[in-house]
Design a protein around this nucleic acid. Structure first.
Lengths: 187, 187
DNA sequence: TCGACTGTGAGTCAAGATGTCTCATAGAGT
DNA sequence: ACTCTATGAGACATCTTGACTCACAGTCGA
């Protein structure tokens, strides 16, 4: 229906997504309503309805505008790569916006199939990339894995996630190092 | 105002809390409204307002009716005690209600100071009990800790929490064993 | 520059949710 | 039997929600 290259359309869309992300960050997912978003975005309330008829879709899409670090393609030695990537993830988890997205995703996924699919994609991507890297490292004799490589994500990312979302504490280098050592014995 | 021993008062209170907990479990925290709770509990809408003027207080209190396992007093050897306690926690995390409470707590704590205080108490209790047990185990030479003992909770519970709330997967004995080994080197 | 097109803002409207209040009633304690 | 009080039903004003209309202005092709 809409020419999605129209500058007016794109302007409204961006303003709405920005406002929705800010509201999520500042007041939580329940604050992402058509009325509040339209007021903060400086657009008409009807415009928000035209772009996103349901507010949960808007929330879902606003969450994707927050940058979350996935794992990049592994380098050798894998241990150094893991340290780099987990440190990157630790820095991300220090941002309130990332914590807000992470906890909102985990929570809403329990009742919203759309969010659950997003959670599943995210979890699978992390688990697979880490498993592939560690599989390779084990073949090259760099590490003796302690478990199924598909458990490495839980063992390595779990501690950072817990420290950030449950303990609300800083992730120091020691914790990252311990998380690296948790997946197996490095040579 | 109210005689808090009046059977009518206690009956209403219990029915409301039960209904609120069920709604949280089945449809998430946003479903815990005065209207929906009163209907499910079979009490008048005004009665819910009388007991809990604000719905977030009701949600908060309903969450406490879900049993969540803390760590019991440690036994020796600490390694066996940890295995028992983490397995107990893993079984708890398989229940939808526990997952719902855990993720709702982490999420709402970011914007609700009342929930944040509850999160802090929970996290501190777990971290302190585990740290005390491991401190003792290290003094007795049962383990060489890999990090500050206050990081043990993140290293041991983090993987279970991540597996349950992010990966939505089962926590098998291997993962529990790996989590135990993550905190240090056992003798 | 002109004209057709279309996304937008402001506003209206009905339906539903929300919070407060009143009052008759029935359950509880004496 | 008598008093007290928590309750259910309902009334009520207010706010929210979702859908709709319409004049207007920004955009783009001619």
């Amino acid at each position: 229906m809409a020419s999605q290259t129209d500058p007016r359309y794109l302007r409204s869309r961006a303003a709405i997504l920005d406002a929705a992300r800010e509201l999520l960050l500042e007041h939580g997912p329940t604050a992402v309503t058509h009325a509040q978003v339209s007021e903060r975005a400086g657009v008409g309330r009807a415009t928000v309805y035209r772009h996103w008829p349901r507010s949960d879709q808007l929330l879902s899409e606003a969450m994707t505008t927050v940058p979350m670090s996935f794992f990049s393609t592994p380098t050798i030695p894998v241990r150094d790569w893991m340290r780099t990537e987990l440190t990157k993830m630790a820095r991300q988890l220090e941002h309130d916006a990332v914590r807000a997205v992470a906890t909102t995703l985990a929570n809403t996924a329990l009742w919203d199939t759309n969010m659950d699919a997003r959670r599943e994609r995210f979890a699978s991507a992390l688990a697979e990339r880490l498993a592939a890297a560690l599989d390779d490292a084990e073949k090259r004799g760099e590490i003796a894995l302690r478990t199924d490589p598909r458990s490495a994500a839980a063992l390595a990312i779990g501690p950072l996630h817990y420290r950030s979302t449950i303990e609300h504490g800083a992730i120091d280098a020691d914790l990252v190092e311990a998380a690296i050592n948790a997946v197996g014995t490095w040579r």
